[in-house]
Design a protein around this nucleic acid. Structure first.
Lengths: 347, 347
DNA sequence: ATGAAAGCGCTAACAC
DNA sequence: GTGTTAGCGCTTTCAT
């Protein structure tokens, strides 16, 4: 490209020429920078007029290059896919993040994909002042990358970093949330409960934490729980009928997220299994989706909006070099009991 | 800021020095630019090694400044507010736009707010290659601004620009969608139908188009329709009970979007009005929300995801200066009949 | 109060 | 093949 097409209007230099002054004065008047530059009111007026006449629009790229500051932050949510079709987790997340960001005059760039090779380095290309990284894996390779970049990060819904204090981290109490489910089901009279993961997400830290909390709560109630009680099913076709036929003693299913819970519910209904009469189903992430199923899904609610807001605030503090109040926060979960759970049928 | 903190790692110059070559060679090897520069394989290897050693990360800002190209596009959806709580229109929109963008290696910046004064100029600051502008008003002041900026725009769900060919425009057939509603209600036996707008959105072009289509369809069926059949209600508290008491002859309500439809439904239920027995209710934008109400809402579906994808494709064509196939597209709507409409009670 | 000039990191034309 | 250099548009120091 020999003559790169200008994608901005006129430049500060053109304004300076039109007004018969130096670029320094224009910069001072139009953007209030350059504290050693003093401009008389008469000149200032001429400058503003010239800028108006030329439809001047400052080039933010040039400014950012100079200042090493973009006022844009990135939101990383790998595997987000079709957010409208799946769990509404990401929607609430986006809501919370954007609320704070815009109110603080930051821009939001969404990054649903990352280069597999050296993602941190790729992010450190100057365009972003910082990133909110959702479900960041606790990967030593990433930690190594962080050492060589000044990129600011806060982790959201990620496992605690193995190097303590490596980056601030915001999570919900996944284990406590899982315990809530067990307590609820046990109180209803359930004794044998299946835990369902979905293909492609088996390694998700959230999933692990929920499974862990589940196992511990079962133990606390003196109930048996082992690897045979965990399945990994495809959201597109959970083999509920087959599983049911082979395992008639289970009376409840706890799905690690509400999307797979919905899929299991649908499959059960198709197979003629009554929910909650024959089988209780619970999900994680209580969203609009849980209201739209039939029956409505009992689910754990994590305060994702508040968590996202906290993450955004923390990141801005980090960027603007304000001291951090806490370097990590854990939010409690609660349980929204709806219509997909009931006492087990008396056998 | 005297010593702006570098927010990127090492520079191309440092790599050049480390490898004992010129910056031109580094640029060529690392980014494949500079077609007049040829580099031997041996040198290339040294350069790559040096870059690795220094954890080099190219500065995208500098590159963009030089190239006048950022590979970022903006999505303008003013008044988006809490997307998770309201109609899911914006979620599907985001879904469609991001799908195409990421697949074409563009980044997405979301802009839920715009400066009231000279928004176009503010957008033309070099950071965005183009924008998808949702519900852009047909404002002469905007048109004037567009004349002085090279910013690429495609309008989504906006009225056709008064200056023809000013910018590509993508809409759904709002009038046809409204007609679908009337046809459905009339077929059920309804004769007197209320049209509901909501406070703050009375001026929305979409709302107008739907109202227009509604009136025309009523006329086509030989049914009366006038200003007395249109109300502007607050989503937070639609006065359904009062209206009902004063106007017992209406048997159906057509709300211009599903959010207000849901609010009307809730208010009716609270007032002891049976839906659809006493009153049928229809909304516009058939989303997950319509599945979550009780009864489920009959609503017009606009293919917003496809529209958003088309807008993104068009914008990229514009930016990359490929000839445009069409400068405007209108997508047809359909009607999702659910449980909130039924024949009117026989009086 | 004002201007000249250096430089942020990069690309590409041009010279050798 | 390879290096030199002139910008992209801006901020800021330093001289006047």
């Amino acid at each position: 490209m020999e003559n790169p097409i200008r994608n901005t209007g006129s430049t500060i230099r053109e304004v300076a020429e039109a007004a018969g002054v130096s670029v320094a004065s224009v910069s001072k008047v139009l953007h209030g920078r350059g504290k050693n530059v003093r401009v008389s009111e008469a000149r200032a007026i001429e400058i503003r007029e010239a800028a108006e006449r030329l439809h001047y629009s400052p080039n933010a790229l040039a400014r950012s290059l100079r200042m090493s500051r973009t006022h844009s932050i990135g939101l990383i949510w790998v595997q987000m896919q079709r957010i409208a079709d799946g769990p509404l987790y990401y929607v609430h997340l986006l809501d919370g993040v954007s609320t704070i960001l815009f109110q603080q005059h930051y821009r939001l760039t969404v990054l649903p994909e990352l280069p597999v090779h050296q993602p941190v380095r790729a992010l450190s290309d100057g365009r972003l002042d910082g990133v909110i990284w959702c479900k960041m894996p606790d990967d030593p390779a990433l930690a190594e990358e962080f050492k060589h970049t000044p990129l600011k990060v806060v982790a959201l819904n990620s496992p605690p970093p193995s190097v303590s204090g490596a980056y601030p981290s915001i999570t919900c109490d996944n284990e406590g949330g899982a315990a809530l489910v067990v307590d609820h089901l046990v109180a209803l009279g359930h004794k044998r409960i299946l835990f369902a993961l979905d293909v492609g997400w088996e390694g998700a830290p959230d999933a692990h934490a929920r499974l862990k909390g589940f196992g511990e709560a079962m133990a606390r109630h003196g109930l048996p729980f082992g690897t045979e009680d965990v399945v990994v099913w495809k959201v597109s076709a959970p083999p509920v009928a087959e599983w049911r036929a082979a395992n008639p003693d289970y009376t409840a299913v706890f799905a690690w997220h509400e999307g797979i819970a919905g899929a299991i519910l649908a499959a059960a209904t198709r197979a003629g299994i009554d929910v909650p009469g024959d089988l209780s189903i619970v999900g994680f992430d209580s969203t609009l989706f849980c209201e739209s199923t039939k029956p409505r899904l009992t689910a754990v609610r994590q305060p994702i909006r508040e968590m996202a807001e906290a993450a955004a605030r923390m990141l801005i503090d980090l960027i603007e070099e304000r001291p951090l109040v806490t370097s990590s926060m854990t939010f409690p979960c609660s349980l929204d009991v709806r219509d997909s759970t009931a006492p087990p049928a008396v056998v």
